[in-house]
Structures are given as C-alpha cells and as structure tokens.
Nucleic acid binder design. Structure first.
Lengths: 190, 190
DNA sequence: GCAACTAAACCGTCCAGCCGGTATATAAAT
DNA sequence: ATTTATATACCGGCTGGACGGTTTAGTTGC
C-alpha cells in the first residue's frame, strides 16, 4: 500500500519486480529466492526487504503490476478498436493477444506460477479481474455465446503460450486469431 | 523408470500420487515436501523414497499418471461420441470437459504447477501430447478453424477451472459447453 | 528370503526474515 | 548557523528452521 520512493528515483520497486519476473522465467517459480532477486535487481537483500517487507509482498506486487498493465492496455485498446458487434469481447481478446505477442505474457505467467507456488490465495486479485470481465461481457455483448467462446479460446491460446506449451506455428496462430475474430464478430448461428 | 510394485498391491504408488496432488492443491506447489506427502499418504518417508527415489521422480510420476488418464479417457470417449462433422475435435473437447467435471482437473493442474515450480522441463511429455492433439485435429477435421477454436475455448475453460479462477455459474458453463459444441459441429461461416 | 516397507536419526544446504549499521536529506531547535 | 532529530533508502552478516536425501536397524507378509 505504500510507495516509499516518491522522490527523483522512480525505479527501485520496478527494478525489483522486473528482476523477479526474469528470474522466475529463468530458473523456475519454485527456485525464486530473495537473494537472487536482490542481486539481479542490483541492490542488497536489505534494500529489497525494505521495499517488499516479505516475500509474499513481493509476489503480491508482481501480480498487481501485471493486473495494472493488463487493465491499462485494455483501456488503451478500447479507443482503437473499430466499432461493430461484440465490441467488448473484441477488446478483451485483442488485449490478451497483444500481451502475448508483446512478450509480457511470459512475465504474467511466471508471476502467476510463482504466486501459486507459494500461496494459491495470492491469485484472488486475478479472480476479481476475471469476474469483472465476465460481468462486462454479459452486459455489453450482442451475442454472448460468441463472446464467451471467443474469450475462452483466447484464454486457451494465451495459456498455452504462457507455459511454452503452444504447438502452433505462426501461420497456425494467425489462422486461429482470425477464426476467433470471425466467431466473435459474426456470432454463433443458432 | 522403475515400477517396483508389480505384485498384488496396486496402491502405494497411487496413494502417494493422490496425496501429492491433494497437498499441492491445499498448500501450493512450492510447499510440497516429501515429509508432508509421506504423512498424507500414510506411510513413512523411507517408504515414499522407496517408491520414488527422488522428488523429481515423484513429480514425473504425477505428470505421467495424468497424461495416461487423459489418453485413456479419450480412447473410451471415442467409442461413445456419435458420428458427425469434426468428430476428433468433439472427442478432444468432451475429454477435457469430462476431466474438469470429474474433479480430476484440479489434480492435473496442481501436478503441472508443482512440476513447473520445480523444473519447467518436466512438462515435456505434456508438450508432446498437445502436439499430437494438434496433428490429429489437422488430419481429421472437416472445419479446422472451428475445431481449433473449440479446442482452445475448452482449454481456456478448463484452465480457468484448473486454477479455481472460473467465474462461471453452472448455467453459464452449460451455455458455454453447448456454444462450443455448436461451433465445432456447425463450423465457422466464411 | 526377499520385497516392501517402518522408524528415526542425521547431514548438508538453502533461505526468509531479522537486525544493527550507514549515508543522505530535510526539518526543528537552540 | 550549528546542532540535533527524524525519516528515507539501503547495506550485508547472521541465524534458526525447514527440507531433500541418506543411512541404519528393524519388521511384516507373501
């Protein structure tokens, strides 16, 4: 809840979070240690613990930053998506896919892995975001079924990519993205 | 690589794997300890290490059992699914959804979390299964786009349920399953 | 008599969190 | 103006406990 560094610097917390995300990607969520994070972030363990008093706080910070990034990404995209049917669903799918491509998804995944490795309860904020997304889709969709299927397919794709499990070539992926878009825009025939 | 228990008993290994899966779900993948598994499985640490000489062997065992369960489930389902378009895709989606409902998915998820927490390389067998699924779909689909979207949507749904992130009510889920089925059977309009 | 354990001590390593410092800056008191 | 006080931001050694794995000596049941 505190933002200790309000003066000139803007970085210690960010550097720490970056370092932690990279480390998880490199060595696995279960092997994340405070010493390693501190070294990678370029400060001491004491400095790290000054910014994040416990390891759990660090993991919360990782999760929260990702959520913030995703929501701001979504807001930014909302302005650029051309109007048409199932707009909200298209914003959601585009956001997810953008994050995947931007390499941010790896970071997101590793954070989630780290969190669940340590304490599954840390995913509560993520649960809330997902619940809100569903609420948004229910309120704003022209064809809810199509919106949900599109959303879930995108989730499935990004989950696979998150864990480096995706078997798809670039062409495959391209086809899939277009197919999802078609489903969302044209709806599901009754 | 060894299966020490080939005679009468069929349980110690299973009990251990069950215990490990439950434990991960309860306390998080990163906190899985051999002592805890042994206690929960109702045997001594020595007995545990007799069945799985290292922790890594235990994790491999968890992953492998899940894969075996999924593939046998799929084979069993293949016989029961009524013929029609995109049959392979329907088998795949039904399999995933069946596992979710059966509560087995939680187990699958926790195993995967535990594995990746310890060593991402342990997911290699899973990668192979997914690659094979894609190959099957490519070879046997009447409308590949629809098959892939259906598969991915199912993956997305099961992933959410795996991590207890699903915001869906039972009615929601029912609608979604039907919608996915419609996409797979009727194809995606060009 | 061997496979499948039990029970418990033990070892080496790892690591989170603690704690006593340090440096700098800003503010208050004298 | 100089001292004193307070707060921020950070350093880095230390420790106590947990954990993976080993060993040993004994036990049960087929």
């Amino acid at each position: 809840m505190l933002f200790p560094c309000t003066r000139g610097r803007k970085s210690s917390r960010e550097k720490i979070l970056d370092a932690a995300a990279e480390l998880v990607a490199e060595i696995g969520a279960g092997r994340l240690t405070l010493d390693a994070v501190a070294e990678k972030a370029g400060l001491s363990k004491g400095g790290l613990l000054y910014n994040f008093p416990t390891k759990e706080a660090l993991l919360q910070g990782m999760i929260q930053r990702m959520i913030d990034q995703v929501t701001s990404e979504k807001d930014a995209l909302r302005a650029t998506v051309e109007p048409g049917p199932n707009l909200e669903a298209r914003v959601v799918t585009k956001t997810l896919l953008n994050i995947c491509c931007g390499g941010k998804m790896q970071e997101f995944a590793t954070g989630m892995m780290a969190a669940t490795a340590e304490n599954p309860g840390l995913l509560d904020p993520v649960r809330q975001v997902i619940g809100n997304t569903l609420k948004q889709l229910k309120a704003n969709s022209d064809d809810l079924d199509a919106a949900l299927v599109g959303w879930l397919a995108t989730e499935g794709l990004s989950n696979l990519e998150m864990h480096n499990l995706s078997p798809f070539t670039d062409e495959d992926r391209d086809r899939i993205v277009k197919a999802i878009d078609r489903v969302v825009v044209k709806g599901i025939a009754e």
